[in-house]
Each structure stands twice: as structure tokens, then as C-alpha cells.
Design a binder for these strands. Structure first.
Length: 560
RNA sequence: UGGGGUAUAGCCAAGUGGUAAGGCACCGGUUUCUGGUACCGGUAUUCCCAGGUUCGAAUCCUGGUACCCCAGCCA
């Protein structure tokens, strides 16, 4: 990583450091273990940064392991997208990609081991019966009538399960722990179930699949993972995680640590809900720029560094929280402020005729690509008699402190001259259709004599402007916590105005942008050429985030 | 009502017995050919509440309160 890992301390980092210093571990090994049943989102980025970050900081390693124990919900496309997203974020996993399914044979052996020890049994109860026998949060469960089968019988039955002799749901293998445990996860958890399904990695090889609990810790142990980091909802599973490691001849002793998952205001971070948005066509796919997926953020224009910076800012704790989306905006603005070249683009065009510029006049300015970075070079900016300015930069009856254009007032055309508005032209409906202005040719690179012109506006030569499709994105939801209320569907909170497409006029330098290149459209915001839809001469720009606008804020404050 | 967790500013979050870091947001100001950026300054007598221990408590003790997670053959 190129960024200076200032990385604030957090309890997991502290734990790792202590373990290393105390000699409990020689090196740190972590893993990022997604299930390939959806695209990665910003919450996963937090986990990725944590796991890979730890390995990086302490000179250890981090595996990418797909937790693929449930073939019915997983697909190859998700594996591909996840690999791409992790790589794009700037991380490199140790060695080859791993799969829990790589360990199915070993896991099966260990299941047999448990049976032989008398620690697991085949249960004939169906799903509903198992639920009934499990008891409730306040009442203990009861043992299954099949709980005391002999190891021999269990082994034989389990073998037949494996051979596909039973229907799905007919039998399961359960760990024999404690049906009266106050921790429900310890009430004889199901560790193998029958699935007559084809698996994206192992094909038709297996008819039985291990549960998450039976696969995860052992996979960690097999990979030599030292610190197995997951989210808080798995905390109650830790005793089970430990139980398997203690009852099986595993080659390692990983420890599980839990942290709070990320909640971001104005978004949902649940794969289930994100999938719903995709499947119902509410968004354009998993990588729609409004999605909080890594792929969506990428398409929106976020940089890997900005996402890493964001993860750094929010910290890692065990407290539930709701992070203000402004933090994300800040992360990308601060990156692009330094690294995005500047351009001018008029989103809501208003024609201006410069009356003292001759028809055939064409003057080309060479202007900086970035105000503070000479390494970004320069661009050619032509000026002609007719130009486009933004509708918002003109007001017939300006409020006090408005220092853009108004009848009789002056303003500077960015990188060019100061102009004065002499006349307002109207169309048949009485709407302002164009402005007649005159140029003060004494103001190039210097302030006019005897008066100060405070306003600076962006503009584009009408004769040279290139058509640009601009997609202005806003939050997908209009409330801070769309899924806060259990009784109200989160889809009720959709923001109907989350996408506004506008046909803008861009300066000539924008004609041949490459997909995914990012610009600051001066005075407007940061934009990224859409990686799918941008064509030569026909750029399509996604608004990543607007520039801060203290004028708009002040106006709003006054208005309301 | 069982078990497991968490409470520090509007939002994140340091802090681990010695007198409340930092970031975001917000409010002022300076600079500015982006109402952007940068820079300067302001914003918790107080750490969920109530008692207690101590010269001294956000940190220790006791008792409360609020919120989150768990009853998939999902992960």
C-alpha cells in the first residue's frame, strides 16, 4: 500500500501485538472469508482492510477463502467479482485462493472422528421437530430420541447419507453437546446436512455438506490462521468454534475475535437487501453507482485509496454504530482534490453572446490541468463569441452577497476575461434565453482597474463544446436508517430522485477521456467516466460527489 | 423471562487511577481566478444513571437503565 498506514489503534491490533510479543504466535495469519452469494459491499471493505491490514502491518499473511458450504445459494459469478474487488482495493492474498470446499474430505473425516468419539450422531428428526426439541431462549431443549445411537450405527448411517441414499432433510449429523445449554448454539448443532445439489467447486462429488460452524474453525486451523476475525453476531458461536477445535486433532489453534459490522447512513448493507434491489430492477445491477457495493462505488468514481482511508477513519470496535455517509464523501473528496485533473463542464446551459468578440474570433488559452500540480500539465481552452455558462450563475434579481452574473454586473470567466452583463434576451414565453455580455480585454491574468470582481464562473465555448451525458447520483434512500423500522419495508424509503440524467456541454479536453478517468468539473463536483458506457467523443460521466457548496447551504438555511 | 454483548459531543472514536486525543459534521475568520482547497480559531467542567472506594475515577466496586445479537438442515 502506498498510503502511510497511520492506522489508529484498535482492540484487535492490540491483541495481535500482544500475542506476538508474548510469543503466543510467531506470525499473524488472518483470512477474509466471504460466502460467494452476492457482491462485496462497503461493510466487507471494513473487514478486508482489517484482515489484510493486520497481515501487512505485522508482516504476516492473509488468505482469501470462500466459505462455500452452501451450494444452493452460491455462484461462480460472485467468486469472480469478489476476487476482482479485493484486488482492486489493493490487497493481495497469500498464495492461491482457498475454498472451504477444498477441505470437504478432511471435514468429513473429522465428522467421523467425532462420531467414533461419541461426540456426534445421526438424527432422524425433521427440521420442524429439531426446532421443537431445541427449546426456546428461556426453556432448555430435550434430547432427540436418536441421540444415543451407537458409534457404529452412526458411522454406517452417515456413510449412507454421504452415498446419497437419503432424501434431503431426512437425516442430519449433529454434534452431541448439551441440549440444556443457555447458549442455543450448543444444543446439539447440525453439522452436516444432505443436499442433492451440484456445487460450483466440487461438482457432484458430495451429497452432504458441512455447516458453517463445522467448517469455519477447522478451515482456519488447516490454514494456520492465528486470528479469526468476524462480526459480532458470531460471538455466541465462539464456544462452538472452540469446542470443535478442542475435540478434533486439528493442526492449529486459531482464536476468534469479533468486531461490530458497519452501518452507513442513507444506505443498507445487507446482502439480502442489496440483492432485492438488483432483482427487482430498482437499480441497474450490483455495480449500479448508487449501490454501496465495492463494484458500485468503483463505478461511481471512488478510488481504492479513498475506501481504505474511510475504513481507517471509522475505526474498529465492538459498539454498534451508524457512520455518517459524510465520512465517505470526505474520504473521496480529499483524494480527488489532490489527484483529479480539472475541467469545465456546463450542466444547465445558458447561452451568452460576447458582443465585442467578432464572429470569427477564436482565442486559445493554455490552462493548468490542476491548480497545484504542474505534473498534470496543461490543456487548451478555446474562447469564441458564443459561450455556455450555467443557468445557476445568473440571476435577474440577485439576493445580497450573490456575486455571480446579474444585469449590469461583472464576473470572471474562469481562466479567461471578466465580462459584464449588458442585456437579457427573452424568448416568446418570457423566459431568459440568452445574455449579451461584453468582455473587458484588460483582465486576462490580472484584476480590473479600480474595482474588484469577486465572482468566477465556469464556461465553455459553444463552437467547441462537446456533448456530455452526466448522471447525477444522490442517495438511494431518503432516510438515515432505511431498515431501522421493523414494520416498514425499507423500500418505502427509496429516493425517487437518486438518478438525474443531464445533457451537458463539456470543454474540448473532455472529448477523449478513457473509461474510469476522474475529473473535477470546477465549481461543480467530482465526476468519473463510466467504465461501461463511455465512448470516444461521447463521454458519460457519473457524479461521484459534489463539491461542498457553502453558498447553497447558506441559501437553504435562509430559505427554511 | 435464558444466554451473549455495548454505552465517551450531532456522528465515528482515543483513553486502561492523575484531571477528556483525533476525524466527520457544524459555527466564525484569513487566503483564493473554483462560494472549492488550504490555513487559523470555536464547539463535552464531563464520559448512560445512582451510590460507593480513593488525595484523585470515564477508568475500580455495587445496584440500576437503555440498546444490539441468538430459538436456519443460512453464513
Amino acid at each position: 500500500m502506498s498510503d502511510e498506514s497511520t492506522s489508529a489503534p484498535n482492540f484487535i491490533r492490540t491483541q495481535v501485538r500482544e500475542d506476538l510479543e508474548a510469543g503466543r504466535n510467531e506470525t499473524v495469519v488472518t483470512r477474509f472469508p466471504p460466502e460467494p452469494n452476492g457482491f462485496l459491499h462497503i461493510g466487507h471493505a471494513k473487514s478486508i482492510c482489517l484482515n489484510f491490514g493486520l497481515a501487512e502491518q505485522f508482516g504476516g499473511r492473509c488468505n482469501l477463502r470462500f466459505d462455500d458450504t452452501n451450494p444452493v445459494s452460491e455462484e461462480q459469478v460472485y467468486i469472480d467479482s469478489i476476487r476482482e474487488d479485493v484486488t482492486w482495493l489493493g490487497f493481495q492474498w497469500a498464495g492461491e485462493v482457498r475454498f472451504a470446499s477444498n477441505y470437504f474430505a478432511q471435514l468429513h473425516d473429522w465428522a467421523c472422528h467425532l462420531i467414533r468419539q461419541g461426540d456426534a450422531y445421526v438424527d432422524d428428526l425433521n427440521a420442524e421437530e429439531i426446532r421443537e426439541y431445541r427449546g426456546t431462549l428461556t426453556e432448555p431443549g430435550r434430547p432427540s430420541p436418536w441421540r444415543d445411537r451407537s458409534p457404529e450405527e452412526n458411522l454406517a448411517l452417515f456413510e449412507r447419507m454421504r452415498n446419497g441414499e437419503f432424501a434431503e432433510g431426512e437425516k442430519v449429523l449433529r454434534a452431541k453437546i448439551d441440549m440444556a445449554s443457555p447458549n442455543i448454539n450448543l444444543r446439539d448443532p447440525v453439522i452436516y446436512r444432505i443436499r442433492h445439489a451440484s456445487h460450483h467447486q466440487s461438482g457432484e462429488q458430495w451429497k452432504i455438506y458441512p455447516s458453517y460452524d463445522f467448517a469455519h474453525g477447522q478451515s482456519d486451523a488447516l490454514e494456520g490462521v492465528t486470528h479469526s476475525i468476524c462480526t459480532l453476531e458470531f460471538e455466541d458461536h465462539r464456544p462452538l468454534y472452540d469446542w470443535f477445535l478442542e475435540h478434533l486433532p486439528v493442526p492449529g489453534r486459531p482464536r476468534q475475535y469479533e468486531f461490530a459490522r458497519l452501518n452507513l447512513s442513507y444506505t443498507v448493507t445487507s446482502k439480502r437487501k442489496l440483492r432485492m434491489l438488483v432483482e427487482r430492477g430498482i437499480v441497474d445491477g450490483w455495480d449500479d453507482p448508487r449501490m454501496p457495493t465495492i463494484a458500485g462505488l468503483r463505478r461511481r468514481g471512488y478510488t481504492p485509496a479513498s475506501i481504505r482511508h474511510f475504513c481507517d477513519m471509522i475505526g474498529v470496535t465492538r459498539a454498534d454504530s451508524l457512520v455518517d455517509i459524510q465520512m465517505l464523501y470526505h474520504a473521496i473528496r480529499s483524494d480527488l482534490e489532490d489527484n483529479a485533473p480539472r475541467a469545465m463542464c456546463v450542466l444547465k446551459p445558458l447561452k451568452v453572446v460576447l458582443t465585442n468578440v467578432p464572429d470569427e474570433h477564436e482565442e486559445v488559452f493554455e490552462v493548468a490541468g490542476h491548480p497545484a500540480r504542474s505534473d498534470m500539465g496543461t490543456r487548451q481552452l478555446p474562447l469564441t463569441r458564443e459561450i455556455w455558462i450555467d443557468t445557476d450563475d445568473f440571476m435577474e434579481e440577485p439576493p445580497k452577497k450573490y456575486f455571480r452574473l446579474a444585469p449590469g454586473r461583472e464576473v470572471r470567466l474562469r481562466n479567461a476575461y471578466v465580462i459584464r452583463c449588458d442585456e437579457v434576451i427573452r424568448d416568446a414565453q418570457g423566459e431568459v434565453s440568452e445574455l449579451h455580455c461584453s468582455v473587458d480585454f484588460e483582465t486576462l491574468g490580472k484584476n480590473p482597474e479600480g474595482r474588484k470582481v469577486k465572482g468566477v464562473i465556469h464556461w465553455v465555448s459553444a463552437a467547441h463544446a462537446i456533448p456530455v451525458e452526466v448522471r447525477n447520483y444522490d442517495n438511494l434512500f431518503q432516510v438515515e436508517q432505511p431498515d431501522r423500522d421493523r414494520d416498514v419495508d425499507f423500500l418505502e424509503h427509496l429516493n425517487e430522485g437518486s438518478l438525474e440524467v443531464v445533457h451537458a456541454w463539456g470543454e474540448p479536453a473532455l472529448a477523449d477521456v478513457s473509461p474510469e478517468s476522474r475529473y473535477q468539473f470546477e465549481r461543480v463536483g467530482y465526476f468519473c467516466a463510466d467504465r461501461h458506457d463511455t465512448r470516444p467523443e461521447r463521454p458519460v460521466f457519473n457524479r461521484t460527489v459534489s463539491l461542498k457548496d457553502s453558498w447553497a447551504k447558506a441559501q437553504k438555511r435562509q430559505g427554511s
